[in-house]
Design a protein around this nucleic acid. Structure first.
Lengths: 162, 162
DNA sequence: GGAGATTGTTTGGGGATCAAACAAATTCAG
DNA sequence: CTGAATTTGTTTGATCCCCAAACAATCTCC
């Protein structure tokens, strides 16, 4: 069988693997960057003694800015199933960050809102997120940052609708 | 009960929610874009009657280009724990895409390799991935594509609390 | 009033992820 | 060479995310 010129057999060099075409793929770079950013987010919060995921932060911001919204509306905004949202809200509610009020106008829905404690916590979280963003963007100029966010949006609209 | 002609204060319009500062955050845009790209990837494969995740594709490419590597080396390259890799390889092996050979030089390790069927399948997968990449990048010029991948890499370098 | 739709929840089924414990094999110290 | 330490793959246990289907409570519309 036509074998390429013999390489050192057995042990591939630690750390440096042949990634083939992967580095040229946007999807690959996106996934790796996302993973690194997520890790930086987690580290930023852990260092401050807080615990929160990017998804939870986004959810809290949405609830703060749209007080009284229903779980269905929130699930739709997050792009997840309404049944997926239930345990997430359970956890946030157990942490006293938000509450499910009964809607006075529609007995089926829950009106979501931050607790006073949740509002204070979110202000704290927001400061951590800004510090985190500042760090991951420290290698980019303001113009590059704008370009990056803009290009990501362009990609998003070209991808198939969910 | 007459239905109110105007919007009552509780109901935000479907789809348009106040996202506050989220759209200005790179992490948020990254997460949403990643999600859309993932959905497009899945749709592309489903449309062709194939089933594969981006992670599985990356894994198969790594094994193809580095035949004989161990599970530890692969896990390290993927940035996941070696115990996480086990069920993933089980599934791929059950689909006859790859095999765990016994290493002749080190009885502890498994030498991973694609099966002949796996190589043929990966060639097919590669064509689907290129079509998928072409679509998600259809809104960008070649220069913009290069810029995007380059900026993502810059971010990855800055986000390194690992 | 009653049929049909909506909402939140529960249950069941996939997976992804890590940590800890283990057996088998290798490497290393003495 | 022999026993201790390390490495590798696996199993188990714990969270977590995701969806689909079924269900009761509630609302809407005819």
């Amino acid at each position: 069988m036509g074998r390429p010129p013999a390489k050192s057999p057995g042990k591939p060099l630690a750390g440096s693997l042949d990634r083939g075409l992967l580095p040229s793929l946007l999807g690959y770079g996106l996934r790796r960057t996302q993973s690194a950013v997520f890790a930086d987010f987690a580290a930023t919060f852990a260092h401050a003694g807080e615990a929160l995921t990017p998804g939870e932060f986004g959810l809290l911001v949405l609830v703060e800015r749209n007080a009284g919204l229903s779980q269905m509306a929130l699930a739709r905004a997050l792009g997840i199933d309404r049944s997926t949202l239930v345990p997430i809200l359970d956890r946030l509610q157990a942490r006293d960050l938000l509450v499910r009020h009964r809607s006075p106008t529609d007995g089926r829905t829950h009106a979501l809102a931050l607790t006073p404690f949740g509002r204070k916590a979110l202000a704290r979280f927001g400061r951590l997120v800004r510090a985190h963003e500042k760090r991951i963007l420290s290698g980019l100029s303001a113009a590059e940052t704008r370009t990056l966010i803009e290009l990501l949006e362009k990609v998003r609209v070209s991808a198939r609708p969910l």
